[in-house]
Simulated assay, not measured.
Amino acid sequence: MTTVRVAVPRKGRPLEAVLERLASATGTADLADEIISTLQYEKAITKGKQTATADVYDRLADYSDIDERGAPEYSLLRDDRQGMPRRIVFDSVTIPVGDIDIQLIGREEPFRALRKHEFALGFDSADLVLEEVVGLQPEPLTSLADVNERIDPLDTDVRVVSGLGDTVWHTLLATPETTDQLDEDLTRSFIEAYDGTLCISPRYERLVEAVLGTRAIEDVSFTYPDPGTTEEAAIAETGIGVYLTVTGSTAHDHGLELGEQLFPSETVLLENTAEGSDAVEEATDVIVGADLETQLASS
């Protein structure tokens, strides 16, 4: 049996999206639910919303039954919250599928592990790909389908295979007072005509440059939320900005109008094309499948 190792996040919604996708593709819903519920419980303990009934090492030993084939394993990491509490996170699990085993292995930075050729396949945020390897051009980047064309082949062998559809959107947000300044809808065209400050999260600066296009932001300067200020509140104070939205309710609560959805933020399947094999191709076919609806279909 050939094992295909796949790098995945150690915790959070991206890992849940991966587990849910594999559950749908392989019929392992109970296993996915077990891992997700365990990590959600541990997250609640770390954030002080649950009281643990056992010591962290006892819980870790209870979760990781290494004598049972296919059982999930977990690790301890230092969380970056105040006091740096120890947090139980995902380590690995092996799922037999046809002639291969798909082994999910937790990594803090799956995308970078693929860039270093440690894995052939992995899952990470599309945002990280834009922040690290997508080239900036005058024209905007509008979809996942165009990401690979913006990656310099001399920079990395990693390419986006497919999104998982767990999409939230980087969205243009503005106050009515700002939108009234120009005879334009709140789209990329508005930014091209706009001259002033645009509030963004500092971790998304290069992403915003890519999805708006360098031509549109020639007369725009970025500003960032002060420490302790939410992005929506900072955008409302600035008058216009870009941030992630799901329903837009928080933006509306701050008096903001929702404009164009600029780019989907979702978990993506990545492949290091230099590490391909028949087994990797088989694993990719299992993961993507014909039922996965996303902006980018597997090639």
Results as ranks from 00 to 15, higher is better:
269 L>K: 02
296 L>D: 00
35 I>F: 06
42 E>I: 03
147 V>L: 09
235 I>G: 11
122 G>Y: 04
266 E>H: 01
122 G>V: 07
157 D>I: 01
291 D>V: 03
73 E>D: 10
69 R>H: 12
124 D>R: 00
202 P>M: 09
81 R>N: 11
161 V>T: 01
137 Q>R: 15
249 S>M: 10
277 S>R: 00
34 E>H: 12
293 E>V: 13
91 D>E: 15
22 L>T: 04
101 D>E: 14
239 G>A: 10
225 P>A: 11
256 L>H: 01
88 I>N: 04
129 V>C: 04
127 D>K: 10
170 H>F: 13
35 I>A: 02
238 T>I: 10
24 S>L: 12
19 L>E: 05
59 R>W: 03
53 T>R: 14
219 D>V: 07
216 A>Y: 04
235 I>Q: 05
76 L>M: 11
177 E>H: 08
4 V>M: 04
13 R>P: 03
124 D>H: 05
262 L>C: 01
292 L>D: 00
131 E>T: 08
164 L>F: 01
218 E>R: 15
153 P>T: 08
158 V>C: 05
181 Q>S: 13
237 E>H: 11
8 V>F: 00
167 T>F: 02
251 A>F: 01
4 V>R: 04
120 A>C: 05
136 L>D: 05
117 H>W: 08
159 R>W: 06
217 I>W: 07
75 S>H: 12
207 L>N: 07
269 L>M: 06
179 T>Q: 15
122 G>Q: 00
290 A>R: 15
129 V>L: 05
24 S>Q: 13
47 K>L: 14
139 E>Q: 14
137 Q>E: 15
204 Y>C: 13
53 T>D: 12
8 V>I: 15
10 R>A: 10
294 T>N: 14
151 I>K: 01
30 D>T: 12
299 S>M: 10
56 V>P: 01
112 R>P: 07
156 T>Q: 00
194 Y>R: 03
141 L>W: 10
204 Y>D: 15
267 T>V: 03
228 G>H: 00
19 L>T: 01
198 L>G: 06
76 L>I: 15
134 V>C: 15
222 F>D: 05
177 E>W: 02
249 S>H: 11
248 G>F: 06
208 V>W: 02
216 A>Q: 07
51 T>Q: 14
129 V>K: 02
127 D>G: 09
141 L>F: 05
41 Y>C: 02
16 E>M: 04
189 S>T: 14
247 T>Q: 05
48 G>C: 07
127 D>V: 12
18 V>D: 02
165 G>S: 00
287 I>W: 00
252 H>C: 03
57 Y>A: 14
188 R>F: 01
266 E>W: 05
30 D>H: 06
143 S>G: 13
164 L>D: 02
